[in-house]
Design a binder for these strands. Structure first.
Lengths: 132, 132
DNA sequence: CGTACTGTATTAACAGACTAGTACACTTTC
DNA sequence: GAAAGTGTACTAGTCTGTTAATACAGTACG
């Protein structure tokens, strides 16, 4: 199981790592129940801080993809393949939207803004329309 | 022309203001060529810093929605209604995606991450698939 | 012209996200 | 039960985005 991240890629390292793990599960390189690399080992291999690996693992745990056992290690959750598949589908949904918007001439900033607007709308009551 | 913003809404004030202006143009409350409120006047009315209004106006100018004339004022661009309509359509695209993802159980963080992943993919070469 | 109004530019204060450093607590193995 | 290995918790530094404070430059109008 070889991971690789790019600290100067613009996107956060912990996020890149999360994607890598999900991808590995999707293609079957990581199986349910299997143990993941330990924090320090992976951190050393990627030449990053162990806390960055922790961040990735912890968020993956929150998504139900991995399971952290204190003192024992990090393991691929039993439901991981299913969740990873859902995650992949979600990715497709967003990819379609972003592609359409990008094709319409919107830049990164504008796309990010649209997302924030929609999230804010959800956070509020969500009245779908634009007439308060 | 009455605008209103909420400084503790979570989303940036200048962004809220941009939406308001676009909305006003979409519904015809602001017509092409019409003069917008001056920086200081609007800032005073909304009880925010003039620079925040500047930020909104300047970005709207970058999107071709408004036109800033040094010493004269801010005006609704001739192409504004058309651009505002495109902007509205883009909003619908993103709204659909976000709604679907939200319905699938994803929270704000996860949705934001998906966007960043997709933007990063665009920024790179965009190979659509997941197999580099 | 000159006054009062416009937008412009530069700098700083503040908050949040990301990463790093260091010490702690639990499991496994012998 | 002790040592080595695991994840956990807390703190601090750095960077970026947002807002604010203040001084500058152009335009309109008498």
């Amino acid at each position: 199981m070889i991971f690789h991240v790019n600290p100067s890629s613009g996107s956060p390292i912990y996020l890149q790592l999360m994607e890598q793990v999900k991808h590995a599960i999707e293609i079957g390189a990581l199986l349910a129940g299997e143990q993941l690399p330990t924090l320090r080992k992976l951190a050393e291999e990627l030449v990053i801080n162990p806390n960055t690996v922790v961040r990735a693992y912890r968020e993956l745990e929150h998504e139900g993809i991995v399971e952290l056992r204190h003192g024992a290690g990090a393991f691929v959750s039993e439901s991981a393949p299913n969740r990873a598949k859902i995650s992949l589908k979600a990715q497709t949904v967003m990819q379609t939207a972003v592609d359409r918007l990008s094709a319409a001439g919107l830049n990164e900033k504008e796309i990010r803004r649209l997302v924030e607007s929609e999230l804010a709308r959800l956070r509020a009551g969500d009245m779908t329309g634009r007439n308060a």
